[in-house]
Design a protein around this nucleic acid. Sequence first.
DNA 1: CGCGGCTTTGATGTTCATCAAGTAAAGTGG
DNA 2: CCACTTTACTTGATGAACATCAAAGCCGCG
Lengths: 238, 238
Amino acid sequence: MYFKHFRMRIKKDIDSCRTCIYRQMLFGDLDDFEYKLINKARTERFYRKGEVIKNQGEKVDSFLYLRKGLVKLFKTDKRGKEKILSINKPGDFVNLLNIFSKTNYKYSIEAIEDTLVCDVDLEVLEHVICTNGDFAMRVLNRMSKISDEIIENRFEQAQKQLKGRVATILLFFADDIYHSLKFDLPITRREIGELISMTTENTIRTFSEFKRDKLINIKTKTIIILDKERLKIIAKSG
Amino acid sequence: MYFKHFRMRIKKDIDSCRTCIYRQMLFGDLDDFEYKLINKARTERFYRKGEVIKNQGEKVDSFLYLRKGLVKLFKTDKRGKEKILSINKPGDFVNLLNIFSKTNYKYSIEAIEDTLVCDVDLEVLEHVICTNGDFAMRVLNRMSKISDEIIENRFEQAQKQLKGRVATILLFFADDIYHSLKFDLPITRREIGELISMTTENTIRTFSEFKRDKLINIKTKTIIILDKERLKIIAKSG
DNA sequence: CGCGGCTTTGATGTTCATCAAGTAAAGTGG
DNA sequence: CCACTTTACTTGATGAACATCAAAGCCGCG
């Protein structure tokens, strides 16, 4: 694979963290001493598209948050088929829900675009949680919100059939990830299928159908949303 | 409904809490002062089968843990159809994953057997979390574990088809809930369908098929598992 | 330039939901 | 306690949604 020649860069750039808007969300209210502790325990890592960040089975020993790029969380079943659990974007606390269970990763994490991740040593994070109750509450609050979202999302998606799910994922990329009606898909059709629980063939068929109906335009990886309103209706009603 | 004539009992029996094995799991290491705080904020509530404990949309203002009985968490979609998210048994921290998000219940909770619930005022719980970092860590650990289980469960169930899911739910009742090969179903066939995402009719059909194949015996609500090994194989392979 | 993975389309088959219709059981009211 | 109503349960027939299988073109890359 092409990224094998690439040497992973690890940065320790305190200034880039001080100005990081994502940091503010969780670490914003820490006092100077705690902040320095976290910052010393923090590593900034860069991954090329396609690189694996964590492997299913690895020990969970750090807290990850995504600064730039895009990652997918996925699991492999016995037959070797993958299923994508979620796609995370900048600002997401990728593994927050699972880091405190003292077990190994139950899923893998892979960069699907060139990605910058902040990695905070878990022991240090736990130390700060133990000594700063308000910070602990913020972590709990964040975890609950992530959990709320997952429950709500699953519930919504479960009622939909294929067209609705494809429409939803297209709007997800357009609105939540790229903030544009035109974007390049960061994943293959097979992966989209793995994400919304359908086969590659039916993913493609639905794409073709949307193109026929002038909802979108497709040129291999490039998608242009032509009729967002109708796509929204399909995404909602199923 | 028959329970309308029933007056809800609220108890404040400190001794029953001191000896409560479930309490130990989370509140075991609190010091005397904190323990008394929690205990004062605690209410023990009894619900008859069929009673609603929390309604979708209600404010989340307490932490619930189940001492006796059985509850279901469910959501209603636009068309009025219900979907059961999970069934909780004694020892489960029913709403732990969601209580810190400062929003309202995204699901309803209903007793599906006569049920005893401990209800701890959320503000007091949060106070103790803020002042006791080790306790905060135990809460975080518990949340992560619940989350791990949900992810794992969903992943397993998603690969299975109807027979596998029905077999799984039968083993769940036999092994995890009643610890017996013979038990009375606490929910209707429709509800089983809502729990494993299939129609009432197909739930029944699968039951009938299992009966024909001498895997189980059914007499309305009463189930006897005749061939657990074969049932396990079906549950696993799908 | 040829190999392997991605993409595409069509044909076929399976799984499951929906519809219909009837029986059994359980709650309700006189 | 019995008629009445409602809800739960059951089975069969039909059709829709989706997976699977097959085959071919495309594209990047060694």
